[in-house]
Amino acid sequence: MTAPSFSVSDSSRDPIIALDGVRLNLRSGAGEVNILRGIDLVVPAGESISIVGPSGAGKSSLMMLMAGLERATGGTVRVAGHDLGRMSEDQLALFRRAHVGIVFQAFRLVPTMTALENVAIPLELAGAADAFDRAAEGLQAVGLGHRTSHYPEQLSGGEQQRVALARAFVAGPSLLLADEPTGNLDGHTGEQVIELMFDLKRRFGTTLVLITHDLDLARRCQRTIHLADGRIVADETEGVTNLATAGS
Protein backbone atom coordinates (compact mmCIF):
# COMPACT_ATOMS: atom_id res chain seq x y z
CA MET A 1 0.00 0.00 0.00
CA THR A 2 1.53 3.30 -1.09
CA ALA A 3 1.93 5.90 1.64
CA PRO A 4 0.02 9.12 0.93
CA SER A 5 1.47 12.58 1.31
CA PHE A 6 -0.33 13.20 4.61
CA SER A 7 1.54 15.79 6.70
CA VAL A 8 0.71 15.45 10.37
CA SER A 9 1.55 18.39 12.58
CA ASP A 10 4.83 18.11 14.48
CA SER A 11 4.45 16.70 17.99
CA SER A 12 5.45 19.01 20.81
CA ARG A 13 6.37 18.36 24.40
CA ASP A 14 3.09 19.86 25.52
CA PRO A 15 0.11 17.50 25.87
CA ILE A 16 -2.22 17.51 22.91
CA ILE A 17 -5.21 17.10 25.26
CA ALA A 18 -5.46 18.67 28.72
CA LEU A 19 -8.80 18.50 30.52
CA ASP A 20 -9.11 20.14 33.93
CA GLY A 21 -12.24 19.69 36.06
CA VAL A 22 -14.43 19.28 32.99
CA ARG A 23 -18.15 19.06 33.60
CA LEU A 24 -21.04 18.72 31.19
CA ASN A 25 -24.65 19.23 32.26
CA LEU A 26 -27.53 18.98 29.80
CA ARG A 27 -31.15 19.91 30.31
CA SER A 28 -33.93 17.43 29.67
CA GLY A 29 -37.66 17.25 30.29
CA ALA A 30 -36.89 15.67 33.64
CA GLY A 31 -34.45 18.43 34.62
CA GLU A 32 -30.70 18.83 34.45
CA VAL A 33 -28.63 15.72 33.70
CA ASN A 34 -24.99 15.50 34.84
CA ILE A 35 -23.16 13.84 31.93
CA LEU A 36 -19.54 14.49 32.98
CA ARG A 37 -18.66 15.17 36.61
CA GLY A 38 -15.18 16.63 36.84
CA ILE A 39 -12.84 15.04 34.30
CA ASP A 40 -9.08 15.54 34.64
CA LEU A 41 -7.11 14.01 31.77
CA VAL A 42 -3.77 14.71 30.09
CA VAL A 43 -2.83 12.98 26.82
CA PRO A 44 0.70 13.41 25.40
CA ALA A 45 1.03 13.99 21.66
CA GLY A 46 1.34 10.75 19.69
CA GLU A 47 -0.21 8.53 22.37
CA SER A 48 -3.04 6.08 21.71
CA ILE A 49 -5.74 5.93 24.37
CA SER A 50 -9.03 4.10 24.56
CA ILE A 51 -12.08 5.18 26.53
CA VAL A 52 -14.32 2.43 27.84
CA GLY A 53 -17.34 2.19 30.10
CA PRO A 54 -21.01 1.23 30.15
CA SER A 55 -23.59 2.92 27.97
CA GLY A 56 -24.39 6.34 29.41
CA ALA A 57 -21.00 6.69 31.10
CA GLY A 58 -20.20 9.80 29.04
CA LYS A 59 -17.74 8.38 26.50
CA SER A 60 -19.17 9.96 23.37
CA SER A 61 -19.86 13.23 25.19
CA LEU A 62 -16.20 13.37 26.22
CA MET A 63 -15.15 12.86 22.60
CA MET A 64 -17.53 15.61 21.47
CA LEU A 65 -15.89 18.01 23.94
CA MET A 66 -12.42 17.11 22.62
CA ALA A 67 -13.61 17.86 19.10
CA GLY A 68 -15.18 21.17 20.04
CA LEU A 69 -18.58 19.88 18.97
CA GLU A 70 -19.97 20.31 22.49
CA ARG A 71 -19.12 22.97 25.07
CA ALA A 72 -18.21 22.11 28.63
CA THR A 73 -20.43 23.46 31.39
CA GLY A 74 -17.41 23.86 33.64
CA GLY A 75 -13.66 23.32 33.68
CA THR A 76 -11.13 23.77 30.90
CA VAL A 77 -10.74 21.86 27.62
CA ARG A 78 -7.41 22.45 25.89
CA VAL A 79 -6.63 20.62 22.65
CA ALA A 80 -3.56 21.21 20.47
CA GLY A 81 -2.78 24.32 22.51
CA HIS A 82 -6.25 25.85 22.11
CA ASP A 83 -8.65 26.65 24.95
CA LEU A 84 -11.85 25.46 23.27
CA GLY A 85 -14.10 27.19 25.77
CA ARG A 86 -12.82 30.60 24.65
CA MET A 87 -13.39 30.03 20.93
CA SER A 88 -16.33 31.07 18.75
CA GLU A 89 -18.16 28.56 16.56
CA ASP A 90 -16.27 29.80 13.51
CA GLN A 91 -12.95 29.48 15.34
CA LEU A 92 -13.88 25.96 16.46
CA ALA A 93 -14.65 24.98 12.86
CA LEU A 94 -11.21 26.22 11.79
CA PHE A 95 -9.63 24.40 14.75
CA ARG A 96 -11.23 21.10 13.72
CA ARG A 97 -10.20 21.58 10.11
CA ALA A 98 -6.58 22.11 11.14
CA HIS A 99 -6.18 19.58 13.95
CA VAL A 100 -8.92 16.93 14.22
CA GLY A 101 -10.01 13.90 12.21
CA ILE A 102 -13.15 12.03 13.28
CA VAL A 103 -14.34 8.51 12.44
CA PHE A 104 -17.87 7.53 13.45
CA GLN A 105 -19.58 4.17 13.76
CA ALA A 106 -22.11 5.14 11.06
CA PHE A 107 -19.42 6.19 8.50
CA ARG A 108 -21.20 9.53 7.74
CA LEU A 109 -20.22 9.68 4.10
CA VAL A 110 -22.13 12.03 1.80
CA PRO A 111 -24.29 9.65 -0.29
CA THR A 112 -24.37 11.88 -3.39
CA MET A 113 -20.57 12.13 -3.55
CA THR A 114 -18.08 9.58 -4.84
CA ALA A 115 -15.41 8.09 -2.58
CA LEU A 116 -12.91 10.54 -4.06
CA GLU A 117 -15.19 13.53 -3.46
CA ASN A 118 -15.90 12.42 0.12
CA VAL A 119 -12.20 12.17 0.95
CA ALA A 120 -11.49 15.53 -0.69
CA ILE A 121 -14.04 17.39 1.48
CA PRO A 122 -11.66 18.57 4.25
CA LEU A 123 -9.02 19.55 1.71
CA GLU A 124 -11.48 21.54 -0.39
CA LEU A 125 -12.72 23.31 2.73
CA ALA A 126 -9.11 24.22 3.48
CA GLY A 127 -8.71 25.62 -0.04
CA ALA A 128 -6.10 23.05 -1.13
CA ALA A 129 -5.44 23.35 -4.86
CA ASP A 130 -4.39 19.68 -5.02
CA ALA A 131 -7.39 18.38 -3.03
CA PHE A 132 -8.33 15.64 -5.48
CA ASP A 133 -4.77 14.46 -6.05
CA ARG A 134 -4.26 14.11 -2.30
CA ALA A 135 -7.66 12.46 -1.88
CA ALA A 136 -6.69 9.90 -4.53
CA GLU A 137 -3.46 9.21 -2.61
CA GLY A 138 -5.49 8.82 0.58
CA LEU A 139 -7.77 6.23 -1.03
CA GLN A 140 -4.73 4.42 -2.39
CA ALA A 141 -3.32 4.31 1.13
CA VAL A 142 -6.40 2.49 2.45
CA GLY A 143 -6.47 0.06 -0.46
CA LEU A 144 -9.29 1.72 -2.40
CA GLY A 145 -7.44 3.31 -5.28
CA HIS A 146 -9.69 1.35 -7.64
CA ARG A 147 -12.92 2.65 -6.06
CA THR A 148 -12.51 6.41 -6.46
CA SER A 149 -15.60 6.87 -8.63
CA HIS A 150 -17.91 4.65 -6.58
CA TYR A 151 -20.70 6.07 -4.41
CA PRO A 152 -21.19 4.92 -0.79
CA GLU A 153 -24.15 2.70 -1.69
CA GLN A 154 -21.85 0.83 -4.11
CA LEU A 155 -19.33 0.07 -1.36
CA SER A 156 -19.39 -2.54 1.39
CA GLY A 157 -19.49 -1.46 5.03
CA GLY A 158 -15.78 -2.11 5.41
CA GLU A 159 -14.99 -0.10 2.29
CA GLN A 160 -17.14 2.79 3.50
CA GLN A 161 -15.27 2.84 6.79
CA ARG A 162 -11.95 2.82 4.96
CA VAL A 163 -13.13 5.82 2.95
CA ALA A 164 -14.03 7.47 6.26
CA LEU A 165 -10.52 6.72 7.56
CA ALA A 166 -8.93 8.21 4.45
CA ARG A 167 -11.08 11.33 4.88
CA ALA A 168 -10.08 11.59 8.56
CA PHE A 169 -6.35 11.32 7.84
CA VAL A 170 -6.02 13.14 4.51
CA ALA A 171 -5.57 16.66 5.92
CA GLY A 172 -2.89 15.51 8.38
CA PRO A 173 -4.69 15.95 11.72
CA SER A 174 -2.68 15.84 14.92
CA LEU A 175 -5.63 14.15 16.67
CA LEU A 176 -7.86 11.30 15.48
CA LEU A 177 -11.11 10.65 17.38
CA ALA A 178 -12.75 7.29 16.64
CA ASP A 179 -16.17 6.50 18.11
CA GLU A 180 -16.93 2.76 17.89
CA PRO A 181 -15.39 2.62 14.39
CA THR A 182 -16.15 -1.11 13.96
CA GLY A 183 -19.61 -1.10 15.53
CA ASN A 184 -21.39 -1.60 12.18
CA LEU A 185 -18.93 -4.17 10.81
CA ASP A 186 -18.58 -7.94 11.11
CA GLY A 187 -15.67 -9.27 13.14
CA HIS A 188 -13.29 -9.99 10.26
CA THR A 189 -13.94 -6.70 8.47
CA GLY A 190 -13.74 -4.80 11.73
CA GLU A 191 -10.33 -6.31 12.44
CA GLN A 192 -9.07 -5.21 9.03
CA VAL A 193 -10.28 -1.65 9.64
CA ILE A 194 -8.66 -1.54 13.10
CA GLU A 195 -5.34 -2.81 11.74
CA LEU A 196 -5.46 -0.11 9.08
CA MET A 197 -6.31 2.60 11.61
CA PHE A 198 -3.42 1.66 13.91
CA ASP A 199 -1.07 1.42 10.92
CA LEU A 200 -1.96 4.93 9.77
CA LYS A 201 -1.65 6.22 13.34
CA ARG A 202 1.86 4.74 13.66
CA ARG A 203 3.07 5.97 10.28
CA PHE A 204 1.93 9.54 10.73
CA GLY A 205 2.40 10.00 14.47
CA THR A 206 -1.23 10.94 15.06
CA THR A 207 -2.66 10.93 18.58
CA LEU A 208 -5.53 8.43 18.73
CA VAL A 209 -8.54 8.53 21.06
CA LEU A 210 -10.64 5.40 20.57
CA ILE A 211 -14.07 4.86 22.11
CA THR A 212 -15.06 1.21 22.28
CA HIS A 213 -17.03 -1.39 24.23
CA ASP A 214 -14.45 -4.05 23.29
CA LEU A 215 -11.92 -4.37 26.12
CA ASP A 216 -9.55 -6.50 24.00
CA LEU A 217 -9.51 -3.78 21.36
CA ALA A 218 -9.18 -1.08 24.02
CA ARG A 219 -6.04 -2.68 25.43
CA ARG A 220 -4.30 -2.50 22.09
CA CYS A 221 -3.92 1.20 22.90
CA GLN A 222 -1.09 2.38 25.14
CA ARG A 223 -3.57 3.50 27.75
CA THR A 224 -7.18 2.72 28.69
CA ILE A 225 -9.41 5.21 30.50
CA HIS A 226 -12.38 3.69 32.33
CA LEU A 227 -15.45 5.92 32.70
CA ALA A 228 -18.47 5.32 34.91
CA ASP A 229 -21.26 7.73 35.79
CA GLY A 230 -19.43 10.63 34.17
CA ARG A 231 -16.17 10.12 36.06
CA ILE A 232 -12.80 8.51 35.36
CA VAL A 233 -12.67 5.53 37.70
CA ALA A 234 -9.45 3.93 36.45
CA ASP A 235 -6.50 4.76 34.20
CA GLU A 236 -4.76 1.64 32.88
CA THR A 237 -1.32 2.02 31.31
CA GLU A 238 0.61 -0.98 29.95
CA GLY A 239 -1.17 -3.40 32.24
CA VAL A 240 -0.91 -1.20 35.36
CA THR A 241 -4.29 0.06 36.59
CA ASN A 242 -4.48 3.20 38.69
CA LEU A 243 -7.82 3.63 40.42
CA ALA A 244 -9.10 7.20 40.41
CA THR A 245 -10.63 8.94 43.37
CA ALA A 246 -14.15 9.95 42.45
CA GLY A 247 -14.81 13.67 42.52
CA SER A 248 -17.76 15.31 44.20
Score class of each variant (00 low, 15 high):
T2Y: 09
P4G: 09
P4H: 07
F6H: 05
S9F: 11
R13M: 07
R13I: 02
R13F: 10
D14I: 00
I16P: 00
L19G: 09
D20S: 14
G21A: 08
R23L: 09
L24N: 01
L26G: 03
R27I: 05
R27T: 04
S28G: 08
A30D: 06
G31C: 00
V33Y: 04
N34T: 04
L36V: 08
V43N: 10
V43F: 11
A45E: 15
G46C: 11
G46E: 09
I49K: 05
S50W: 05
S50Y: 03
I51T: 09
G53N: 12
G53Y: 11
P54A: 10
S55Q: 00
A57E: 04
A57Y: 02
S60Y: 06
S61Y: 00
S61N: 03
M63K: 14
L65I: 04
A67N: 01
L69V: 13
L69M: 15
G75M: 10
V79Y: 13
D83I: 00
M87P: 03
S88Q: 11
Q91I: 08
L92R: 13
A93S: 13
A93T: 14
R96H: 13
H99W: 06
I102P: 15
Q105D: 07
Q105A: 00
A106G: 02
R108K: 11
V110M: 12
T114D: 04
A115R: 04
L116I: 02
N118E: 11
A120E: 09
P122C: 14
L123K: 07
A126N: 06
A128K: 12
A129P: 01
D133L: 08
G138N: 13
L139P: 10
L139V: 12
A141M: 13
A141C: 07
R147Q: 11
R147S: 11
H150W: 05
Y151H: 13
P152N: 15
E153V: 10
E153Y: 13
E153P: 00
E153L: 03
L155E: 05
E159S: 07
Q160I: 02
A166Y: 08
A166H: 10
A171Q: 15
A171S: 15
P173W: 05
S174K: 01
S174T: 05
L177F: 06
A178F: 01
E180L: 03
T182A: 05
T182G: 05
N184P: 03
G187C: 00
G187M: 05
T189F: 02
G190I: 08
V193A: 11
V193Y: 14
I194C: 04
I194Q: 00
E195R: 15
F198L: 07
F198V: 01
L200N: 06
L200T: 04
K201F: 08
G205L: 06
L208E: 14
L210E: 13
H213F: 03
L215F: 08
D216S: 14
D216I: 06
L217P: 04
Q222N: 04
I225A: 13
A228F: 06
D229W: 06
G230M: 01
R231P: 00
I232P: 04
G239M: 14
T241A: 07
N242S: 09
L243I: 05
A244F: 03
S248C: 01
